[in-house]
């Protein structure tokens, strides 16, 4: 049973790696940010699968931090330009 979990985790990992291409090719910073967010979600999926497979339930806490990380980095990224800084 745990073999299946790890196999699916490998599939997710490969899918994440392929998604990295979007970070490399862009074209806009927003596209890259988006890809980074996708990574966060898939990473949570991988951790959710690893937690029972490795027998470490605490991995769910790491997944929680991933979720917060995605929210924080997007918030830091989508800051609005303030009027006086406008070129």
């Amino acid at each position: 049973m745990h073999e299946i979990l790890i196999a699916v985790a490998i599939i997710l990992l490969i899918s994440m790696s392929v998604g990295l291409i979007r970070i490399v090719i862009g074209p806009t910073p927003a596209d890259r940010m988006m890809a980074a967010q996708l990574l966060g979600t898939s990473g949570i999926g991988v951790l959710a699968l690893l937690a029972p497979a490795l027998g470490v339930p605490a991995l769910m806490d790491v997944a929680l931090i991933f979720a917060l990380l995605a929210a924080v980095s997007v918030a830091a990224f989508t800051r609005r330009r303030v009027g006086q800084d406008r070129p």
């Binding site: 990295l20 980074a36 990574l39 990473g43 990380l69 980095s73």
Partner: peptide, 8 residues
């Protein structure tokens, strides 16, 4: 961005 992905 790549560094953030690397951290993950």
């Amino acid at each position: 961005m790549l560094f953030i992905a690397f951290g993950l």
